[in-house]
Design a protein around this nucleic acid. Structure first.
Length: 568
RNA sequence: UGCCCGGUCGUUCAAUUGGUAGGACAACGGAUUUUGGGUCCGUCUAUCGAGGUUCAAGUCCUCGCCGGGCAGCCA
Protein backbone atom coordinates (compact mmCIF):
# COMPACT_ATOMS: atom_id res chain seq x y z
CA UNK A 1 0.00 0.00 0.00
CA UNK A 2 2.58 2.53 1.09
CA UNK A 3 4.95 1.25 -1.54
CA UNK A 4 2.42 1.75 -4.23
CA UNK A 5 1.63 5.24 -3.05
CA UNK A 6 5.26 6.16 -2.97
CA UNK A 7 5.79 4.86 -6.44
CA UNK A 8 2.86 6.83 -7.65
CA UNK A 9 4.04 10.00 -5.92
CA UNK A 10 7.47 9.64 -7.49
CA UNK A 11 5.99 9.17 -10.90
CA UNK A 12 3.90 12.26 -10.52
CA UNK A 13 6.81 14.29 -9.23
CA UNK A 14 8.80 13.29 -12.27
CA UNK A 15 6.20 14.63 -14.63
CA UNK A 16 4.10 13.07 -17.35
CA UNK A 17 4.82 9.67 -18.77
CA UNK A 18 6.79 9.19 -21.92
CA UNK A 19 7.62 6.26 -24.12
CA UNK A 20 11.24 6.14 -22.97
CA UNK A 21 10.33 5.75 -19.33
CA UNK A 22 7.67 3.22 -20.20
CA UNK A 23 10.19 1.16 -22.15
CA UNK A 24 12.75 1.21 -19.37
CA UNK A 25 10.14 0.39 -16.76
CA UNK A 26 8.92 -2.49 -18.90
CA UNK A 27 12.44 -3.90 -19.25
CA UNK A 28 12.86 -3.72 -15.51
CA UNK A 29 9.49 -5.31 -14.88
CA UNK A 30 10.21 -8.09 -17.35
CA UNK A 31 13.49 -8.83 -15.62
CA UNK A 32 15.49 -8.22 -18.77
CA UNK A 33 17.68 -5.92 -16.68
CA UNK A 34 18.07 -5.28 -12.99
CA UNK A 35 19.85 -1.93 -13.05
CA UNK A 36 19.54 0.97 -15.44
CA UNK A 37 22.67 2.30 -17.08
CA UNK A 38 22.51 5.00 -19.73
CA UNK A 39 25.16 7.08 -21.41
CA UNK A 40 25.68 10.58 -22.71
CA UNK A 41 28.08 10.28 -25.67
CA UNK A 42 29.35 13.62 -26.99
CA UNK A 43 31.99 13.71 -29.69
CA UNK A 44 34.71 16.10 -28.49
CA UNK A 45 34.70 18.10 -31.68
CA UNK A 46 32.73 21.15 -30.62
CA UNK A 47 30.76 22.83 -27.91
CA UNK A 48 27.60 21.53 -26.31
CA UNK A 49 24.37 23.38 -27.01
CA UNK A 50 20.78 23.53 -25.82
CA UNK A 51 19.95 20.46 -27.89
CA UNK A 52 22.60 18.42 -26.08
CA UNK A 53 21.01 19.64 -22.87
CA UNK A 54 17.85 17.80 -23.82
CA UNK A 55 19.81 14.60 -24.36
CA UNK A 56 21.51 15.05 -21.00
CA UNK A 57 18.22 15.63 -19.23
CA UNK A 58 16.98 12.39 -20.72
CA UNK A 59 20.13 10.30 -20.27
CA UNK A 60 20.91 11.44 -16.74
CA UNK A 61 17.25 11.87 -15.86
CA UNK A 62 16.17 8.34 -16.76
CA UNK A 63 19.16 6.80 -15.03
CA UNK A 64 18.50 8.80 -11.90
CA UNK A 65 14.82 8.12 -11.88
CA UNK A 66 15.38 4.37 -11.90
CA UNK A 67 18.23 4.44 -9.42
CA UNK A 68 20.91 3.70 -11.98
CA UNK A 69 23.66 5.87 -13.41
CA UNK A 70 24.71 7.55 -16.59
CA UNK A 71 28.14 7.22 -18.17
CA UNK A 72 29.79 10.17 -19.77
CA UNK A 73 31.45 8.69 -22.81
CA UNK A 74 33.45 10.71 -25.25
CA UNK A 75 32.85 9.29 -28.69
CA UNK A 76 36.34 10.02 -29.93
CA UNK A 77 36.74 7.78 -32.93
CA UNK A 78 37.70 10.38 -35.50
CA UNK A 79 41.15 11.80 -34.70
CA UNK A 80 41.02 14.43 -37.38
CA UNK A 81 38.16 16.29 -35.74
CA UNK A 82 38.60 15.87 -32.04
CA UNK A 83 40.63 17.81 -29.50
CA UNK A 84 41.34 17.78 -25.79
CA UNK A 85 40.13 21.37 -25.57
CA UNK A 86 36.64 20.18 -26.36
CA UNK A 87 36.81 17.40 -23.81
CA UNK A 88 37.50 19.99 -21.12
CA UNK A 89 34.81 22.36 -22.32
CA UNK A 90 32.25 19.57 -22.43
CA UNK A 91 33.02 18.53 -18.86
CA UNK A 92 32.63 22.13 -17.71
CA UNK A 93 29.32 22.56 -19.48
CA UNK A 94 27.84 19.33 -18.19
CA UNK A 95 28.75 20.22 -14.62
CA UNK A 96 27.36 23.69 -15.08
CA UNK A 97 24.08 22.27 -16.30
CA UNK A 98 23.96 20.35 -13.06
CA UNK A 99 24.75 16.77 -13.99
CA UNK A 100 27.31 14.61 -12.27
CA UNK A 101 28.71 11.49 -13.86
CA UNK A 102 30.85 10.72 -10.82
CA UNK A 103 33.49 8.15 -11.71
CA UNK A 104 31.61 7.02 -14.79
CA UNK A 105 33.77 8.70 -17.38
CA UNK A 106 34.83 6.76 -20.45
CA UNK A 107 36.29 7.23 -23.89
CA UNK A 108 35.51 5.15 -26.91
CA UNK A 109 39.26 5.29 -27.56
CA UNK A 110 39.76 3.25 -24.38
CA UNK A 111 38.13 0.38 -26.24
CA UNK A 112 40.20 0.47 -29.43
CA UNK A 113 41.97 -2.79 -28.56
CA UNK A 114 38.76 -4.55 -27.58
CA UNK A 115 37.03 -3.23 -30.68
CA UNK A 116 39.87 -4.56 -32.79
CA UNK A 117 39.43 -7.99 -31.24
CA UNK A 118 35.70 -7.89 -31.85
CA UNK A 119 36.46 -7.14 -35.48
CA UNK A 120 38.81 -10.11 -35.72
CA UNK A 121 36.07 -12.25 -34.25
CA UNK A 122 33.65 -11.08 -36.89
CA UNK A 123 36.20 -11.76 -39.61
CA UNK A 124 36.75 -15.22 -38.19
CA UNK A 125 33.05 -15.87 -38.49
CA UNK A 126 33.12 -14.81 -42.11
CA UNK A 127 31.06 -11.75 -41.31
CA UNK A 128 33.55 -9.05 -42.20
CA UNK A 129 36.07 -8.51 -44.96
CA UNK A 130 38.79 -6.17 -46.07
CA UNK A 131 37.81 -4.23 -49.15
CA UNK A 132 40.40 -2.69 -51.48
CA UNK A 133 37.85 -0.42 -53.09
CA UNK A 134 38.23 3.32 -52.93
CA UNK A 135 35.62 5.50 -51.27
CA UNK A 136 34.27 6.38 -54.69
CA UNK A 137 33.99 2.76 -55.74
CA UNK A 138 32.24 1.82 -52.55
CA UNK A 139 29.78 4.62 -53.03
CA UNK A 140 29.03 3.70 -56.59
CA UNK A 141 28.56 0.07 -55.63
CA UNK A 142 26.16 0.86 -52.84
CA UNK A 143 23.20 1.07 -55.18
CA UNK A 144 20.39 3.56 -54.77
CA UNK A 145 17.25 3.94 -52.73
CA UNK A 146 15.45 1.72 -55.22
CA UNK A 147 18.19 -0.51 -56.64
CA UNK A 148 20.32 -3.09 -54.89
CA UNK A 149 24.03 -2.53 -54.56
CA UNK A 150 26.83 -4.57 -56.14
CA UNK A 151 28.98 -6.91 -54.14
CA UNK A 152 32.66 -6.12 -53.98
CA UNK A 153 34.99 -8.73 -55.49
CA UNK A 154 36.85 -8.66 -52.15
CA UNK A 155 33.76 -9.99 -50.45
CA UNK A 156 34.77 -13.59 -51.07
CA UNK A 157 38.20 -13.35 -49.50
CA UNK A 158 38.97 -16.06 -46.98
CA UNK A 159 38.86 -15.36 -43.28
CA UNK A 160 42.56 -16.04 -43.04
CA UNK A 161 43.38 -13.53 -45.76
CA UNK A 162 41.08 -10.96 -44.19
CA UNK A 163 42.63 -11.45 -40.79
CA UNK A 164 46.09 -10.99 -42.25
CA UNK A 165 45.09 -7.92 -44.23
CA UNK A 166 43.32 -6.38 -41.26
CA UNK A 167 46.37 -6.93 -39.08
CA UNK A 168 48.52 -5.26 -41.71
CA UNK A 169 46.09 -2.37 -41.87
CA UNK A 170 46.61 -1.95 -38.17
CA UNK A 171 50.39 -1.95 -38.29
CA UNK A 172 50.38 0.72 -40.93
CA UNK A 173 51.27 -1.12 -44.12
CA UNK A 174 48.68 0.73 -46.15
CA UNK A 175 48.00 4.33 -46.98
CA UNK A 176 44.91 6.26 -45.93
CA UNK A 177 41.95 5.11 -47.98
CA UNK A 178 43.72 2.09 -49.46
CA UNK A 179 41.55 -0.42 -47.65
CA UNK A 180 38.64 -0.61 -45.25
CA UNK A 181 37.10 -3.33 -43.16
CA UNK A 182 33.44 -3.91 -43.94
CA UNK A 183 30.75 -6.03 -42.39
CA UNK A 184 29.41 -8.71 -44.73
CA UNK A 185 25.67 -8.33 -44.52
CA UNK A 186 23.50 -7.75 -47.58
CA UNK A 187 24.19 -5.50 -50.54
CA UNK A 188 20.52 -5.72 -51.51
CA UNK A 189 19.13 -4.72 -48.13
CA UNK A 190 16.37 -2.12 -48.41
CA UNK A 191 17.98 -0.32 -45.47
CA UNK A 192 21.13 1.17 -46.93
CA UNK A 193 22.83 0.97 -43.55
CA UNK A 194 22.95 -2.81 -43.95
CA UNK A 195 24.74 -2.81 -47.32
CA UNK A 196 28.11 -3.92 -45.99
CA UNK A 197 28.85 -0.89 -43.82
CA UNK A 198 32.42 0.22 -43.29
CA UNK A 199 33.76 -0.71 -39.85
CA UNK A 200 37.29 0.62 -40.02
CA UNK A 201 39.10 3.17 -42.11
CA UNK A 202 42.80 3.93 -42.29
CA UNK A 203 43.79 7.32 -40.92
CA UNK A 204 47.43 8.03 -40.26
CA UNK A 205 46.58 10.79 -37.87
CA UNK A 206 47.40 11.68 -34.31
CA UNK A 207 44.61 11.08 -31.86
CA UNK A 208 44.23 13.43 -28.90
CA UNK A 209 44.44 10.53 -26.48
CA UNK A 210 45.98 7.53 -28.20
CA UNK A 211 48.54 9.54 -30.13
CA UNK A 212 49.96 7.48 -32.97
CA UNK A 213 49.26 4.10 -31.44
CA UNK A 214 46.61 3.49 -34.07
CA UNK A 215 46.25 4.22 -37.73
CA UNK A 216 42.93 2.46 -38.18
CA UNK A 217 39.90 3.95 -36.50
CA UNK A 218 36.47 2.45 -35.94
CA UNK A 219 33.43 4.07 -37.53
CA UNK A 220 30.54 5.25 -35.38
CA UNK A 221 28.45 2.14 -35.96
CA UNK A 222 31.22 -0.18 -34.97
CA UNK A 223 32.28 1.84 -31.95
CA UNK A 224 29.06 3.01 -30.40
CA UNK A 225 27.06 -0.13 -29.84
CA UNK A 226 30.08 -2.14 -28.81
CA UNK A 227 31.08 0.57 -26.35
CA UNK A 228 27.57 0.44 -24.96
CA UNK A 229 27.91 -3.32 -24.55
CA UNK A 230 31.33 -3.09 -22.93
CA UNK A 231 29.98 -0.62 -20.40
CA UNK A 232 26.84 -2.64 -19.82
CA UNK A 233 24.69 0.26 -20.95
CA UNK A 234 21.14 -1.01 -20.75
CA UNK A 235 19.49 1.81 -22.66
CA UNK A 236 21.24 3.74 -25.37
CA UNK A 237 18.92 6.69 -25.91
CA UNK A 238 19.59 8.72 -29.00
CA UNK A 239 18.37 10.98 -31.72
CA UNK A 240 15.83 9.77 -34.27
CA UNK A 241 18.60 10.19 -36.85
CA UNK A 242 19.99 6.88 -35.62
CA UNK A 243 16.79 4.99 -36.12
CA UNK A 244 17.99 3.42 -39.34
CA UNK A 245 21.18 2.38 -37.60
CA UNK A 246 19.35 0.24 -35.07
CA UNK A 247 19.15 -2.92 -37.21
CA UNK A 248 22.91 -2.71 -37.57
CA UNK A 249 23.34 -2.01 -33.86
CA UNK A 250 21.34 -5.14 -33.12
CA UNK A 251 23.12 -7.17 -35.81
CA UNK A 252 26.49 -6.58 -34.17
CA UNK A 253 25.16 -7.53 -30.77
CA UNK A 254 23.63 -10.71 -32.14
CA UNK A 255 26.67 -11.79 -34.12
CA UNK A 256 29.18 -10.96 -31.43
CA UNK A 257 27.04 -12.39 -28.66
CA UNK A 258 27.74 -9.40 -26.44
CA UNK A 259 25.67 -7.55 -23.84
CA UNK A 260 22.37 -6.62 -25.47
CA UNK A 261 22.15 -2.87 -24.98
CA UNK A 262 18.90 -1.48 -26.28
CA UNK A 263 18.88 1.57 -28.51
CA UNK A 264 15.76 3.72 -28.35
CA UNK A 265 15.39 6.89 -30.39
CA UNK A 266 13.61 10.10 -29.57
CA UNK A 267 13.02 13.34 -31.46
CA UNK A 268 15.54 16.07 -30.94
CA UNK A 269 14.13 19.31 -29.63
CA UNK A 270 14.09 22.15 -32.08
CA UNK A 271 13.48 25.67 -30.86
CA UNK A 272 12.01 28.53 -32.83
CA UNK A 273 14.31 31.36 -33.95
CA UNK A 274 17.28 29.12 -33.22
CA UNK A 275 19.79 27.00 -35.12
CA UNK A 276 21.92 24.35 -33.46
CA UNK A 277 23.78 22.59 -36.22
CA UNK A 278 27.48 22.70 -35.56
CA UNK A 279 28.17 23.68 -39.12
CA UNK A 280 25.86 26.66 -38.93
CA UNK A 281 27.02 27.78 -35.52
CA UNK A 282 30.56 27.73 -36.83
CA UNK A 283 29.50 29.74 -39.84
CA UNK A 284 27.99 32.41 -37.58
CA UNK A 285 31.32 32.74 -35.85
CA UNK A 286 33.47 32.64 -38.96
CA UNK A 287 31.43 35.29 -40.72
CA UNK A 288 31.60 37.53 -37.68
CA UNK A 289 27.87 37.45 -37.02
CA UNK A 290 28.59 36.60 -33.39
CA UNK A 291 31.71 37.04 -31.31
CA UNK A 292 32.38 33.36 -30.62
CA UNK A 293 31.02 30.14 -29.18
CA UNK A 294 30.13 31.96 -25.98
CA UNK A 295 28.43 34.93 -27.56
CA UNK A 296 25.37 35.47 -25.36
CA UNK A 297 23.12 35.07 -28.39
CA UNK A 298 24.42 31.59 -29.14
CA UNK A 299 22.40 28.50 -28.17
CA UNK A 300 25.59 26.91 -26.85
CA UNK A 301 25.67 26.16 -23.15
CA UNK A 302 28.63 28.52 -22.75
CA UNK A 303 26.67 31.21 -24.58
CA UNK A 304 23.59 30.69 -22.46
CA UNK A 305 25.73 30.73 -19.35
CA UNK A 306 27.29 34.03 -20.32
CA UNK A 307 23.88 35.39 -21.15
CA UNK A 308 22.85 34.63 -17.58
CA UNK A 309 20.42 31.80 -18.26
CA UNK A 310 20.16 29.71 -15.10
CA UNK A 311 20.87 26.01 -15.64
CA UNK A 312 17.80 25.21 -13.57
CA UNK A 313 15.68 26.92 -16.22
CA UNK A 314 17.16 24.81 -18.99
CA UNK A 315 16.66 21.58 -17.09
CA UNK A 316 13.13 22.44 -16.13
CA UNK A 317 12.35 23.49 -19.68
CA UNK A 318 13.37 20.19 -21.18
CA UNK A 319 11.77 18.21 -18.41
CA UNK A 320 8.44 19.93 -18.86
CA UNK A 321 8.60 19.88 -22.63
CA UNK A 322 8.75 16.13 -22.45
CA UNK A 323 9.91 13.76 -25.12
CA UNK A 324 8.23 12.07 -28.04
CA UNK A 325 9.07 10.87 -31.53
CA UNK A 326 7.43 13.48 -33.66
CA UNK A 327 9.11 16.45 -35.25
CA UNK A 328 8.76 19.54 -33.15
CA UNK A 329 9.62 23.19 -33.01
CA UNK A 330 9.23 24.48 -29.50
CA UNK A 331 8.45 28.13 -28.99
CA UNK A 332 11.50 29.91 -27.64
CA UNK A 333 9.04 31.85 -25.49
CA UNK A 334 8.65 28.75 -23.36
CA UNK A 335 12.36 28.74 -22.55
CA UNK A 336 12.07 32.42 -21.66
CA UNK A 337 9.20 31.59 -19.36
CA UNK A 338 11.39 29.17 -17.41
CA UNK A 339 14.22 31.71 -17.25
CA UNK A 340 11.92 34.32 -15.73
CA UNK A 341 10.24 31.81 -13.53
CA UNK A 342 13.53 30.84 -11.93
CA UNK A 343 15.17 34.25 -11.91
CA UNK A 344 12.08 35.80 -10.34
CA UNK A 345 12.65 33.68 -7.27
CA UNK A 346 16.39 34.20 -6.91
CA UNK A 347 17.47 37.43 -8.56
CA UNK A 348 18.04 40.38 -6.23
CA UNK A 349 16.27 43.56 -7.33
CA UNK A 350 18.28 46.64 -8.04
CA UNK A 351 17.58 49.82 -9.95
CA UNK A 352 19.37 50.61 -13.15
CA UNK A 353 18.58 53.17 -15.81
CA UNK A 354 19.64 52.12 -19.26
CA UNK A 355 18.35 55.01 -21.33
CA UNK A 356 18.82 57.93 -18.94
CA UNK A 357 17.24 61.34 -18.81
CA UNK A 358 17.99 63.80 -16.05
CA UNK A 359 15.39 64.66 -13.46
CA UNK A 360 15.87 67.45 -10.92
CA UNK A 361 13.70 67.80 -7.86
CA UNK A 362 13.58 71.54 -7.54
CA UNK A 363 12.25 71.62 -3.99
CA UNK A 364 14.71 69.08 -2.67
CA UNK A 365 17.47 70.85 -0.70
CA UNK A 366 20.78 71.09 -2.58
CA UNK A 367 22.82 69.70 0.27
CA UNK A 368 20.41 67.03 1.40
CA UNK A 369 21.09 63.34 0.92
CA UNK A 370 19.43 60.29 2.38
CA UNK A 371 19.37 56.55 2.10
CA UNK A 372 16.17 54.70 1.51
CA UNK A 373 15.31 51.08 2.14
CA UNK A 374 14.79 48.88 -0.88
CA UNK A 375 13.50 45.32 -0.82
CA UNK A 376 15.93 42.79 -2.25
CA UNK A 377 13.32 40.36 -3.44
CA UNK A 378 9.57 40.71 -2.99
CA UNK A 379 9.26 36.96 -3.60
CA UNK A 380 11.56 36.16 -0.71
CA UNK A 381 11.30 38.09 2.55
CA UNK A 382 14.44 36.42 3.87
CA UNK A 383 16.46 38.17 1.17
CA UNK A 384 16.22 41.34 3.25
CA UNK A 385 16.67 44.91 2.17
CA UNK A 386 19.44 47.25 1.14
CA UNK A 387 20.04 51.00 1.22
CA UNK A 388 19.72 53.07 -1.89
CA UNK A 389 20.97 56.67 -1.95
CA UNK A 390 18.61 59.43 -3.02
CA UNK A 391 19.29 63.02 -4.00
CA UNK A 392 18.14 66.14 -5.77
CA UNK A 393 19.34 64.97 -9.14
CA UNK A 394 18.32 61.64 -10.54
CA UNK A 395 18.45 59.58 -13.68
CA UNK A 396 15.20 58.08 -14.80
CA UNK A 397 14.29 56.08 -17.88
CA UNK A 398 13.61 58.21 -20.92
CA UNK A 399 10.80 55.82 -21.84
CA UNK A 400 9.07 56.70 -18.60
CA UNK A 401 8.33 60.24 -19.72
CA UNK A 402 6.15 61.53 -22.53
CA UNK A 403 5.42 65.15 -23.08
CA UNK A 404 2.21 64.39 -24.89
CA UNK A 405 1.11 60.97 -23.67
CA UNK A 406 -1.51 58.70 -25.23
CA UNK A 407 -4.46 57.63 -23.05
CA UNK A 408 -3.02 54.43 -21.74
CA UNK A 409 0.37 55.85 -20.81
CA UNK A 410 0.48 55.80 -17.00
CA UNK A 411 3.95 57.18 -16.46
CA UNK A 412 5.36 60.66 -16.07
CA UNK A 413 4.21 63.61 -18.13
CA UNK A 414 3.81 67.32 -17.47
CA UNK A 415 1.55 67.98 -14.51
CA UNK A 416 1.28 64.32 -13.54
CA UNK A 417 2.26 62.78 -10.24
CA UNK A 418 4.00 59.38 -10.05
CA UNK A 419 5.94 57.46 -7.45
CA UNK A 420 9.69 56.99 -7.43
CA UNK A 421 10.13 53.51 -6.12
CA UNK A 422 10.94 53.39 -2.39
CA UNK A 423 11.24 57.20 -2.42
CA UNK A 424 8.61 59.87 -2.94
CA UNK A 425 5.75 61.01 -5.08
CA UNK A 426 6.93 63.58 -7.58
CA UNK A 427 5.14 65.84 -9.99
CA UNK A 428 6.59 67.04 -13.25
CA UNK A 429 6.29 70.78 -13.63
CA UNK A 430 8.61 71.75 -16.38
CA UNK A 431 10.47 70.32 -19.33
CA UNK A 432 13.89 71.56 -20.40
CA UNK A 433 14.80 71.18 -24.06
CA UNK A 434 17.93 71.70 -26.07
CA UNK A 435 18.23 73.76 -29.25
CA UNK A 436 16.97 70.83 -31.28
CA UNK A 437 13.83 70.65 -29.20
CA UNK A 438 14.83 67.40 -27.53
CA UNK A 439 13.83 66.96 -23.91
CA UNK A 440 17.02 66.90 -21.84
CA UNK A 441 15.80 67.46 -18.32
CA UNK A 442 12.68 67.19 -16.24
CA UNK A 443 12.03 69.65 -13.44
CA UNK A 444 9.86 68.16 -10.73
CA UNK A 445 8.78 68.76 -7.16
CA UNK A 446 8.41 66.10 -4.53
CA UNK A 447 6.06 65.67 -1.60
CA UNK A 448 8.16 65.08 1.54
CA UNK A 449 5.16 63.50 3.22
CA UNK A 450 5.25 60.56 0.83
CA UNK A 451 8.64 59.28 1.91
CA UNK A 452 8.91 55.55 1.34
CA UNK A 453 6.30 55.73 -1.36
CA UNK A 454 2.94 56.07 0.35
CA UNK A 455 0.79 59.15 0.69
CA UNK A 456 -0.64 59.74 4.19
CA UNK A 457 -3.78 61.12 2.61
CA UNK A 458 -4.28 57.91 0.71
CA UNK A 459 -4.01 59.38 -2.75
CA UNK A 460 -2.87 57.03 -5.46
CA UNK A 461 -0.60 57.29 -8.46
CA UNK A 462 -0.79 55.15 -11.56
CA UNK A 463 2.88 54.46 -11.97
CA UNK A 464 6.01 53.64 -10.02
CA UNK A 465 9.29 54.54 -11.68
CA UNK A 466 12.79 53.25 -11.07
CA UNK A 467 15.59 55.77 -10.74
CA UNK A 468 19.24 56.21 -9.79
CA UNK A 469 20.72 59.09 -7.81
CA UNK A 470 23.00 60.97 -10.18
CA UNK A 471 25.51 61.73 -7.45
CA UNK A 472 25.90 58.06 -6.58
CA UNK A 473 25.30 56.42 -9.93
CA UNK A 474 27.77 53.83 -11.21
CA UNK A 475 28.24 54.16 -14.96
CA UNK A 476 27.94 50.83 -16.74
CA UNK A 477 27.59 49.36 -20.19
CA UNK A 478 24.49 47.34 -20.94
CA UNK A 479 24.12 44.86 -23.77
CA UNK A 480 20.61 44.04 -24.84
CA UNK A 481 20.00 40.86 -26.76
CA UNK A 482 17.16 39.92 -28.98
CA UNK A 483 16.56 36.76 -31.00
CA UNK A 484 19.43 35.98 -33.32
CA UNK A 485 17.02 35.33 -36.16
CA UNK A 486 13.92 37.18 -37.22
CA UNK A 487 12.00 34.14 -38.44
CA UNK A 488 10.80 31.04 -36.62
CA UNK A 489 12.60 28.61 -38.88
CA UNK A 490 15.89 30.24 -39.85
CA UNK A 491 16.98 27.38 -42.06
CA UNK A 492 13.76 27.37 -44.07
CA UNK A 493 14.91 29.28 -47.09
CA UNK A 494 13.71 29.50 -50.65
CA UNK A 495 15.93 28.39 -53.53
CA UNK A 496 18.86 30.71 -53.90
CA UNK A 497 18.24 32.31 -50.52
CA UNK A 498 20.75 32.22 -47.72
CA UNK A 499 19.72 31.28 -44.19
CA UNK A 500 22.03 34.01 -42.95
CA UNK A 501 19.61 36.48 -44.52
CA UNK A 502 17.24 35.53 -41.73
CA UNK A 503 19.53 37.00 -39.12
CA UNK A 504 17.94 39.67 -36.96
CA UNK A 505 20.01 42.82 -37.54
CA UNK A 506 18.99 44.06 -34.11
CA UNK A 507 19.96 41.04 -32.07
CA UNK A 508 22.51 43.10 -30.17
CA UNK A 509 22.17 46.64 -28.84
CA UNK A 510 25.03 48.10 -26.85
CA UNK A 511 24.12 50.90 -24.48
CA UNK A 512 27.26 52.56 -23.19
CA UNK A 513 25.72 55.27 -21.04
CA UNK A 514 23.77 53.54 -18.34
CA UNK A 515 23.65 53.99 -14.58
CA UNK A 516 23.06 51.59 -11.75
CA UNK A 517 22.72 52.07 -8.02
CA UNK A 518 25.89 51.42 -5.95
CA UNK A 519 25.13 47.85 -4.85
CA UNK A 520 24.67 46.79 -8.45
CA UNK A 521 28.01 48.26 -9.39
CA UNK A 522 29.68 45.88 -6.98
CA UNK A 523 28.30 42.63 -8.37
CA UNK A 524 30.91 40.13 -9.51
CA UNK A 525 31.20 38.58 -12.96
CA UNK A 526 28.47 36.04 -13.51
CA UNK A 527 26.16 37.53 -10.89
CA UNK A 528 22.54 37.83 -11.79
CA UNK A 529 20.10 40.53 -10.74
CA UNK A 530 16.86 42.11 -11.82
CA UNK A 531 16.87 45.72 -12.91
CA UNK A 532 13.43 46.63 -11.68
CA UNK A 533 10.92 46.90 -14.48
CA UNK A 534 13.53 46.15 -17.16
CA UNK A 535 14.48 42.53 -16.91
CA UNK A 536 17.11 40.16 -15.63
CA UNK A 537 20.76 41.00 -16.11
CA UNK A 538 24.05 39.23 -15.64
CA UNK A 539 27.53 40.67 -15.19
CA UNK A 540 29.65 39.92 -18.25
CA UNK A 541 33.31 38.82 -18.15
CA UNK A 542 34.14 41.88 -20.26
CA UNK A 543 33.54 43.99 -17.15
CA UNK A 544 36.40 46.11 -15.82
CA UNK A 545 36.81 47.67 -12.40
CA UNK A 546 35.86 51.06 -13.78
CA UNK A 547 33.08 49.90 -16.06
CA UNK A 548 30.93 46.90 -15.33
CA UNK A 549 29.17 45.33 -18.31
CA UNK A 550 25.69 43.87 -17.93
CA UNK A 551 24.03 41.43 -20.31
CA UNK A 552 20.29 41.40 -20.39
CA UNK A 553 19.33 37.78 -19.98
CA UNK A 554 15.65 38.28 -20.68
CA UNK A 555 13.14 41.08 -20.29
CA UNK A 556 10.34 41.02 -17.79
CA UNK A 557 6.95 40.25 -19.24
CA UNK A 558 5.85 43.57 -20.56
CA UNK A 559 2.16 44.32 -20.93
CA UNK A 560 2.82 47.92 -21.89
CA UNK A 561 5.07 47.13 -24.84
CA UNK A 562 2.60 44.49 -25.89
CA UNK A 563 -0.20 47.02 -25.71
CA UNK A 564 1.80 49.47 -27.80
CA UNK A 565 2.64 46.98 -30.51
CA UNK A 566 -0.85 45.53 -30.59
CA UNK A 567 -2.26 47.17 -33.68
CA UNK A 568 1.35 47.57 -34.89
C1' U B 1 10.85 5.50 -57.02
C1' G B 2 12.49 1.45 -52.18
C1' C B 3 12.66 1.20 -46.85
C1' C B 4 11.86 3.37 -42.01
C1' C B 5 9.44 6.91 -38.69
C1' G B 6 5.76 10.31 -37.51
C1' G B 7 0.54 13.11 -37.75
C1' U B 8 -3.94 15.29 -30.74
C1' C B 9 -5.73 22.92 -29.08
C1' G B 10 -1.47 28.43 -31.78
C1' U B 11 3.13 25.50 -29.47
C1' U B 12 4.51 21.17 -26.72
C1' C B 13 3.57 16.83 -24.02
C1' A B 14 -0.46 13.57 -21.88
C1' A B 15 -4.88 10.37 -22.10
C1' U B 16 -5.30 4.72 -16.42
C1' U B 17 -3.14 0.87 -22.92
C1' G B 18 -10.41 0.26 -26.09
C1' G B 19 -13.98 3.79 -21.51
C1' U B 20 -15.67 11.74 -19.70
C1' A B 21 -9.61 14.23 -24.78
C1' G B 22 -6.14 16.84 -19.95
C1' G B 23 -1.63 19.85 -18.34
C1' A B 24 2.04 23.59 -19.34
C1' C B 25 3.21 27.82 -22.36
C1' A B 26 0.72 31.40 -25.47
C1' A B 27 -3.77 34.18 -26.03
C1' C B 28 -8.10 36.58 -23.90
C1' G B 29 -11.01 38.48 -19.55
C1' G B 30 -11.07 39.87 -14.22
C1' A B 31 -8.99 40.62 -9.01
C1' U B 32 -4.78 42.23 -6.27
C1' U B 33 -0.24 44.96 -6.40
C1' U B 34 5.07 50.48 -4.34
C1' U B 35 8.00 46.49 -10.77
C1' G B 36 2.55 47.74 -16.84
C1' G B 37 6.64 42.35 -12.84
C1' G B 38 4.61 38.73 -9.62
C1' U B 39 0.35 36.26 -7.52
C1' C B 40 -4.83 34.58 -7.74
C1' C B 41 -9.47 33.47 -10.45
C1' G B 42 -11.80 32.58 -15.05
C1' U B 43 -12.11 31.64 -20.57
C1' C B 44 -9.78 28.96 -24.50
C1' U B 45 -12.24 26.54 -31.12
C1' A B 46 -7.44 19.92 -31.26
C1' U B 47 -7.57 13.71 -32.37
C1' C B 48 -5.08 14.36 -41.00
C1' G B 49 -9.15 11.85 -44.22
C1' A B 50 -12.43 7.71 -45.71
C1' G B 51 -14.10 3.07 -44.55
C1' G B 52 -14.21 -1.13 -40.95
C1' U B 53 -14.26 -3.96 -35.99
C1' U B 54 -16.82 -2.77 -31.24
C1' C B 55 -21.90 -1.32 -26.59
C1' A B 56 -17.65 2.10 -26.96
C1' A B 57 -11.92 4.09 -31.25
C1' G B 58 -7.11 9.46 -30.47
C1' U B 59 -6.01 4.27 -29.26
C1' C B 60 -7.20 -1.79 -33.12
C1' C B 61 -7.63 -3.09 -38.87
C1' U B 62 -7.63 -1.42 -44.23
C1' C B 63 -6.84 2.23 -47.86
C1' G B 64 -5.44 7.07 -48.73
C1' C B 65 -3.28 12.09 -47.64
C1' C B 66 0.51 15.06 -45.46
C1' G B 67 5.41 15.74 -43.01
C1' G B 68 10.36 13.90 -41.90
C1' G B 69 14.66 10.63 -42.44
C1' C B 70 18.15 7.36 -45.26
C1' A B 71 22.72 6.32 -50.80
C1' G B 72 30.13 9.68 -45.39
C1' C B 73 36.06 5.84 -45.30
C1' C B 74 31.29 12.04 -40.06
C1' A B 75 28.98 11.24 -35.37
Amino acid sequence: MTDKNETQATTEAEGPRNFLRDAVAADLAAGRITKVITRFPPEPNGYLHIGHAKAMCIDFGIADEFGGFCNLRFDDTNPTKEEQEYVDAIRTDIRWLGFDWGSHEHFASDYFEQLYEFACELIGKGLAYVDDHSADEIRSHRGTLTEAGLESPCRTRSAADNLDLFRRMRVGEFADGAKVLRAKIDMAAPNLMMRDPVLYRIRHAEHHRTGTAWCIYPMYDWAHGQSDAIEGVTHSLCDLAYEIHRPLYDWFIANLGIFPSRQIEFARGNITYTVTSKRRLLQLIETGRVSGWDDPRMPTLCGLRRRGVPPEAIRRFWKDVGVAKRENNIEVGLLEYYMRNHLNKVAPRVMGVINPIKLTITNYPEDQAEELDAVNNPEDASAGTHKVPFGRQLWIEADDFMEDPPKKFFRLSPGREVRLRYAYFITCNEVVKDEAGKVVELLCTYDPATKGGDAPDGRKVKATLHWVSAAHAVPVEVRLYDRLFSVENPTDVAEGQDWLDNLNPESLTVLSTCFVEPVAGQLGVGSTCQFERLGYFCVDPDSTASKPVFNRTVTLRDAWTKEQTKGR
